[in-house]
Design a protein around this nucleic acid. Structure first.
Lengths: 241, 241
DNA sequence: ACCTGAACACCGTTCAAGT
DNA sequence: ACCTGAACACCGTTCAAGT
């Protein structure tokens, strides 16, 4: 593998590296081959350059990853900017969360990446500021809004921690005898699987349609928060809705 | 560095390796130096053995990590077994969740580890079975219980995804001018910080007492689920289904 | 200023060999 | 059966050198 250095002196140098070009390429690698494929050496190779050249445009691996998070954050911001306006904090917030979610579905590696960041990227801070603004304008106290931010957690970014990565679904080769064993030691679980398989079959993606689950949880929280918000405004009246 | 091989033929061989001893040591390393310090080579050194000997007792790094999760799961199970009995699903579940949380607080690395597992360790499956059992016995349909499991997510294991690791708190050296900039571009956030700092000072650990936040979210969800459960039992009275 | 080659200090893991 | 030494194929990163 030798590189030719003749051809044309004006064209031979490929479009020079730049911070943006480096992050761009990292993004496409992550999208197609997963985040673990984003390695300084592989990324450099994809850019037709030697590994160590990257350090002239990115301080190191961590900064590269922060750059990826920034890209995701700006995609979310773009999506949110196109949303129809609403006067209700609840529907405004709901739409934002679901918009963020569609971005996460495009970049499956993003939730995992965001969780590993130890310092909060400014781009995400800006996103939280927006969410907070919706709540305050919607009549939340700062105290309740603060708690709401924690309660919603990663939902405002459009995802919930998937306890186990979807890879587990792939290796779901369970033999009959294993199944019987499971049913015996995990009777409730077995019954749930049986019941939900019965119920399913309509329009779900499987017996665990995560979009539906996501919206269920989101609405559960939004409803609870709306109740708290009202309680806060009307002083401690007897319980009523 | 040469090892002596004389001394006493009966005593010189240290207590032999075993699966349990390997996992034990990995656990103490993780507790004291963090999960990233758990490396095959370092672990071996801590056991006074050469790195490759570990492979006789553990199939590989992934299996070692699964072993750590199993240990955590059994600590949770032990904690739960000591809990006082209750007839209410809500207080039973609440106690279980908080018991799991105390285990997680002892092993800060555990949440992060659990999130990375691609296949669900059987020990955790058993834990979920218990949670599910509480709900079903408490009058949940399997459908609602299923959704509840997703809604509670990692809370049943005693933790919520901390979006950013606490390390960020450590590097919280913000200059006055930076602070002013933040206040200008993030007015709501700045106002929240100001308001909550005022309100705090009583018995919280900081202005973000995560134990309190955790319980707030937990109760928000439990209340919402209790409401859904009641709706489910009393047939769809006035509202559309 | 931008890129490179060689090297360093780590990884997990395999394999053939020792006892 | 249990442990080891050497090696392999990777990492991120530093440094002195090239253009």
């Amino acid at each position: 593998m030798k590189r030719q250095r003749r051809t044309s002196p004006t064209v031979s140098r490929r479009t020079p590296l730049s911070h943006d070009r480096v992050i761009d390429h990292a993004m496409t690698i992550a999208d197609s081959d997963g985040l673990e494929a984003v390695t300084m050496r592989r990324l450099a190779a994809a850019l037709g350059v030697e590994a160590m050249s990257l350090y002239h445009h990115v301080r190191g691996k961590e900064m590269l990853l922060d750059g990826l998070v920034d890209r995701v954050a700006s995609e979310i911001a773009k999506g949110i900017s196109k949303l129809p306006r609403s006067t209700s904090w609840r529907t405004t917030l709901r739409r934002r969360v679901l918009a963020a979610r569609t971005v996460m579905l495009r970049h499956r590696w993003a939730p995992g990446l965001i969780e590993t960041r130890t310092s909060i990227p400014p781009s995400l801070f800006l996103h939280y500021e927006g969410v907070l603004g919706v709540m305050i304008e919607g009549g939340f106290s700062y105290h309740l809004a603060h708690r709401a931010m924690h309660a919603l957690g990663s939902m405002t970014l459009g995802f919930v921690q998937e306890l186990f990565s979807p890879a587990s679904a792939g290796s779901a080769t369970v033999t009959e005898t294993q199944m019987a064993q499971i049913a015996r030691s995990l009777p409730y679980t077995a019954a749930m699987v049986a019941a939900e398989m019965h119920a399913g079959g309509d329009s779900t993606l499987g017996w665990c349609d995560s979009q539906a689950e996501f919206e269920f949880t989101l609405d559960l929280l939004l409803d609870g928060l709306e109740r708290k918000r009202k309680e806060e405004r009307r002083p401690p009246a007897p319980r009523r809705r």
